[in-house]
Each structure stands twice: as C-alpha cells, then as structure tokens.
C-alpha cells in the first residue's frame, strides 16, 4: 500500500477531491446497472421512480413485471412463454458453442504454449482475430458464406459462428494459466511411467482447469450476449434472448425488459464470483513462483 503524504490544507483538499472524483467514476461504472434493479419492481409502468417508491411504500413495488416474463404469450405455434423459450434457445446454442470452443481452444492453447511451437506469434494473432475483427464484418461474411452451404437459418450455423467468436477467450485464459505452468510436473509424470494421454488427463488438465473454466465461461457469456450474428443468421423461428431484448428495445422498451435485465445482471454477478474464485485457485497453484518474484 502507498499512502500519499499530503501536506497542508491544499494537499488534503486535493486528496479528498481525488477520492470523490474516483467515487463518481465508480458510480458511473456501476450506477447504470444498479438503477434498473429497483425500477424493475415498479408497480407503475413508468421508467422513473414514482413518489411511492421514494417513500418506500410497499404498494409502489410489485413483482408484476417478473410475472409478465412468465406469461408473455409465445408466437403462434409454440407454447410456453416467449421469454422462457428464448432463454432455452440461447442456453442450447450457448452450451454447444462453448463445448466446441473450449475443446478446440484448450488443446490449441496447450500447443501454443510449447516452446517448440513454430510461427507462434503469427498463428496466435490469427487465432485471436475473431475478437478484434468488427462484428458486423464477421456477421456479414458468415451470413453470405453459410447461406451457400445451407447453414444459414440453422442452429448449427449459429453454434459454429458463436464457437469461433468464443475461442479467443479460451486461448487467452488457458495460455495465461499455462505461463505459470511448471514443465517439471510433466517430466515427473513421464518418469513415473505415465503416458502422454494420462499425463494430460491427470496432470495438465487439473492444473489448467481454472483457466479452462474461465475461458469457457467467457465463451458462454459471449454466445449468450451475441446479437449481430444472430440478426443476420437466424430464421424467424430462432429467437434467442438477446434478439428478444433487441427487438424489445427497438420497438417499445417495457419494464419487462428491465426485469429480464435485472435477472441477467444477477447472473453476471454469479459468474463474476465464480471467475474470481477460479482466479484465486490459479494463484494458489502458482503461489511459490509469485513468492519468488516478490
């Protein structure tokens, strides 16, 4: 820790100005997310805090927008709530895309971390590029090309596109864990008679597990939040959660969307906590080395 040693009233004043400035910036970061939470419990259908809400009158709060999520009628032809079936579609696509991205990305990241890997830098740059290329170019290209192979308007098409968008995160997360990986473990495993496959399953996988999980979570969230590829590639029937929110915002934004948004913010908090726990786990493994550095 570093404590600035301010002298005189001017220094102290600046210190407080700086701290309040930082608080304001944190408010800017978090505030917009927090505002929607109480609003989603609004008993009225306005996007502002009613007087009743400000007085904390229980009458002014209600769960009706959450009930609305469960009771929004679906398109003709399918039953259940519109939001629930969109959530299932998103979940299905997200899980499939994550599995592909994680499997391919993990193996590739392990290869990339080997010191013998040829053309490492350029290949890495190429494999990370789906994260950098503007999404509209990716979506347009994928739509035009997948149409030729009857992959447009199919679940498989969206899954493949989301998988490729998720792989950079898996690579980054797994390579990050592997930079602290001690290759002595491999030699120890080999010298004890384990074959490469067994070494991979019993030594490499458990040690890189936190990185793999972090990458997988990122890939999953990427798919769950992806809208541009879906707009291009999805048929009328393939409605994902982001697509429903997107069309909701574009037509008329309702408090039901805020209720959904609140659920999603809660989900983000849960995911963030899991990632944080995973990160601590990695740090524990790498603790001896970090200790050396300090």
């Amino acid at each position: 820790m570093y404590q600035s040693n301010y002298r005189g009233w001017l220094g102290r004043l600046w210190h407080w100005v700086f701290l309040s400035l930082c608080s304001l910036i944190f408010l800017l970061l978090i505030g917009p997310l927090l505002v929607i939470i109480p609003l989603s419990f609004n008993a009225d259908s306005y996007f502002t805090f009613s007087e009743g809400m400000l007085r904390l009158d229980p009458e002014a709060f209600s769960l009706k927008w959450y009930r609305e999520i469960l009771h929004t009628p679906n398109r003709p032809g399918s039953h259940g709530s519109e939001w629930a079936s969109a959530a299932w579609t998103s979940l299905y696509i997200g899980i499939c895309a994550t599995l592909i991205a994680t499997a391919l990305g993990t193996v590739a990241a392990i290869g990339l971390s080997r010191p013998e890997m040829p053309y490492r830098r350029i290949i890495m740059a190429f494999l990370i590029s789906p994260m950098i290329v503007p999404i509209i170019i990716t979506a347009a290209g994928i739509f035009a090309y997948y149409s030729k192979y009857h992959l447009a308007y199919t679940d498989l098409g969206i899954i493949l596109a989301h998988a490729v968008l998720g792989t950079p995160f898996v690579i980054i997360a797994v390579t990050a864990t592997l930079t602290g990986f001690d290759t002595q473990y491999l030699r120890a495993s080999y010298s004890l008679g384990a074959r490469p496959i067994k070494t991979f399953a019993r030594v490499v996988l458990p040690l890189t597990f936190p990185g793999i999980m972090t990458g997988a979570l990122f890939a999953f969230v990427t798919s769950l939040d992806e809208i541009v590829v879906v707009i291009f590639l999805a048929s009328e029937e393939q409605i994902t959660l982001p697509r429903l929110i997107w069309s909701g915002i574009r037509q008329e934004i309702t408090l039901t969307i805020l209720a959904v948004a609140t659920i999603m913010v809660t989900l983000s908090v849960l995911i963030l906590i899991s990632v944080e726990l995973l990160r601590r786990r990695t740090e524990r493994y790498l603790a001896p080395q970090s200790a050396n550095r300090a």
Binding site: I100, L104, G105, V107, A108, I110, G111, L112, R114, E116, M117, P118, I123, F126, L127, S129, P130, V133, I137, T138, A140, G141, I142, A144, Y145, Y146, L160, A161, A163, V164, T167, I171
Partner: peptide
C-alpha cells in the same frame, strides 16, 4: 516436438479458417 505442438494447434486453425477467415475473405 514441433510437429506435436503444431498438431495440437491445427484443429482450431482449420476451424477458424473454415468458419471465419474464408467467409470473411469471400465476402470482402
């Protein structure tokens, strides 16, 4: 060792080329 390392990267490399790079190139 070089081949093994490259072989591990190869599946993803092919995947990204086929599902991402070629579509974008052909679009552009």
């Amino acid at each position: 060792k070089k081949y093994i390392a490259f072989g591990m990267v190869l599946p993803l490399l092919i995947f990204v080329i086929v599902t991402f790079a070629i579509p974008i190139a052909s679009m552009l």
